[in-house]
């Protein structure tokens, strides 16, 4: 990666984290669906990034979010987990034709259905870790699972909308 590309990623990181803290944090539907849009940063990182770097990035992002959420450790654990699983999962669902000419796993480079198949399991896992740690165990299993499920749908919906708005072809790359 060259330096202008790095700069672009830093800018995107700031935008994602800031929008999580300033807006998305208070965006809750029916006491069930939470919007954790900042996870999108990690999901949409370019494919060329090394496994160590993505782990450290996930850890750092989770840490910043935890400081603002007063939940030190929770988002760090969840982000580290999906940062570790992302390369494995990307390998497992390689689209037909591989990742040639694909810069990042986004809707514009692949397809909407591929993006949903890629993002939803990772988001589900992330939110499950966050909510179960927060609940402090499995004693409210079905309530928590319903929260996880609704939040996954809401977050993935917001992420897709954001991509159509900002990641459209030719504008950002």
């Amino acid at each position: 990666m060259n330096s202008s590309n790095n700069f672009k990623q830093i800018l995107i990181w700031i935008l994602f984290v800031a929008s999580q803290i300033l807006f998305a944090q208070n965006f809750v539907l029916y006491n069930r669906a939470f919007c954790f849009v900042y996870v999108g940063f990690l999901l949409l990182l370019p494919l060329g990034i090394s496994r160590n770097n993505i782990l450290l990035l996930g850890f750092l992002t989770g840490f910043i979010i935890d400081v603002f959420y007063n939940s030190l450790g929770t988002h760090m654990a969840a982000m580290t987990l999906i940062a570790f699983l992302r390369p494995i999962w990307l390998n497992a669902i390689t689209p037909r034709g591989g990742y040639e000419n694909v810069e990042s796993p986004a809707v514009k480079d692949l397809s909407l259905s591929w993006f949903l198949a890629y993002a939803m399991p990772l988001l589900f896992l992330h939110l499950a870790v966050v909510f179960f740690i927060e609940a402090g165990g499995f004693h409210m299993f079905f309530y928590v699972i319903s929260k996880v499920f609704m939040s996954t749908l809401l977050t993935v919906f917001v992420l897709v909308i954001l991509q159509y708005l900002f990641y459209s072809k030719g504008r950002f790359s």
Partner: peptide
Amino acid sequence: IFLLLEVVSGWFVV
């Protein structure tokens, strides 16, 4: 690295 970071997070949580 993954294991190390998870242990650190877990330590913070507890």
